[in-house]
Simulated assay, not measured.
Amino acid sequence: MKIVDAQVHIWSQTITPPSGLHRKVSRFTAEECLKEMDEAGVDAALIHPPYSWDPDSGAVALAAAKKYPDRFAVMGQFAPDKPENRKLIQGWRNQPGMMGLRWALLSDQEQKKLHDGSLDWVWPAAEKEGLPVAMLGGLFLDTFRDIAERHPNLKLILDHCGLNRHGQDEAAFIHLDKLVALAKLPNVAIKATGAPHYSTKGYPFRNIQDGLHRIFDAFGPKRFFWGTDITRMQCSYRQCVTFFTEELPWLKGRDLEDVMGRGLCDWIGWKLETRATS
């Protein structure tokens, strides 16, 4: 089984400290990431450049994908509210290793752009280019749903399980009904990244397993992608893997293979030829 992490960060500098719970280190290189991936049995990973603390992280990610094409690909971004950047989206995937676009839109200021018209051009342009777009849509589910409904040919990805980013345990699942209802839209998928963060109970995070099961049942194995956001996790990389491969009794066989990498690669068009892990 090929194991593909749906989200990692690498960076070369910290202009500002890494956000939230991310490791407070000055840099985290592609080679350091690969070492941890090898130890955990992970074949490949999708890099999300952390522009908020390293403005050069996009170039760093593309360089990693060029150097290790069988290990890394990239979900890039640019400042979408700057008119001069609109030309960038055409031919975006011509950059070797580039798979699509990702904006976290974590802050209130960033989310205002969803409502003031600054980003309205992005969705039809990405739809036309066939670019998947990932966002922390759990912070603005109604707006996320509206975008998905208005652009049915735009592949959208909900980051970090689509849950309440600011809550843990039961508080993480406060909008679960609204979240699983999104699964009725065939152009919406979900990255089950960062799942351990939502539990305060420690491995194997039993108190969030039922909630994850309900999300999986709604979206199915081809739209539910395992991943880590490893530099923000409180558990080991290997535990992030085995939480899904060994601790979820409802995830087996071909479904497990889809969740652990095949579904992600199909969704974003990553024609990955990975080496076999031991």
Results as ranks from 00 to 15, higher is better:
residue 3 I to E: 01
residue 4 V to H: 09
residue 5 D to T: 01
residue 5 D to V: 07
residue 7 Q to R: 06
residue 10 I to T: 11
residue 10 I to W: 09
residue 12 S to M: 05
residue 12 S to R: 10
residue 18 P to I: 13
residue 18 P to H: 13
residue 20 G to I: 08
residue 22 H to T: 07
residue 23 R to W: 12
residue 23 R to L: 15
residue 24 K to F: 04
residue 24 K to G: 06
residue 27 R to G: 08
residue 27 R to W: 08
residue 29 T to F: 13
residue 30 A to M: 12
residue 32 E to C: 03
residue 33 C to M: 14
residue 35 K to T: 15
residue 41 G to F: 15
residue 48 H to T: 11
residue 50 P to R: 06
residue 51 Y to I: 15
residue 53 W to R: 04
residue 54 D to V: 12
residue 54 D to M: 13
residue 55 P to C: 11
residue 57 S to T: 08
residue 66 K to E: 15
residue 66 K to G: 12
residue 76 G to D: 10
residue 79 A to Q: 11
residue 80 P to S: 05
residue 82 K to V: 13
residue 84 E to S: 09
residue 85 N to M: 10
residue 87 K to I: 14
residue 89 I to F: 10
residue 93 R to A: 10
residue 93 R to I: 04
residue 96 P to I: 08
residue 102 R to E: 06
residue 103 W to H: 15
residue 104 A to R: 03
residue 105 L to W: 10
residue 116 D to S: 03
residue 118 S to D: 14
residue 121 W to C: 13
residue 125 A to H: 06
residue 127 E to A: 11
residue 128 K to R: 14
residue 131 L to D: 03
residue 134 A to D: 12
residue 138 G to K: 07
residue 140 F to S: 06
residue 141 L to G: 06
residue 141 L to Y: 06
residue 143 T to P: 01
residue 144 F to W: 01
residue 147 I to K: 01
residue 154 L to Q: 01
residue 158 L to R: 00
residue 160 H to Y: 01
residue 163 L to C: 12
residue 165 R to F: 14
residue 169 D to F: 01
residue 177 D to L: 05
residue 179 L to Y: 01
residue 183 A to H: 11
residue 187 N to E: 08
residue 188 V to C: 06
residue 190 I to R: 03
residue 190 I to T: 09
residue 196 P to A: 08
residue 198 Y to L: 03
residue 201 K to N: 00
residue 204 P to R: 02
residue 204 P to Y: 06
residue 214 R to G: 00
residue 221 P to N: 12
residue 225 F to R: 12
residue 229 D to H: 03
residue 230 I to C: 08
residue 232 R to Q: 06
residue 233 M to N: 10
residue 234 Q to C: 01
residue 234 Q to L: 12
residue 235 C to Y: 02
residue 235 C to K: 05
residue 237 Y to W: 15
residue 238 R to V: 11
residue 243 F to V: 00
residue 245 T to R: 09
residue 246 E to Q: 14
residue 254 R to G: 04
residue 256 L to A: 09
residue 260 M to E: 07
residue 268 I to T: 05
residue 278 S to A: 10
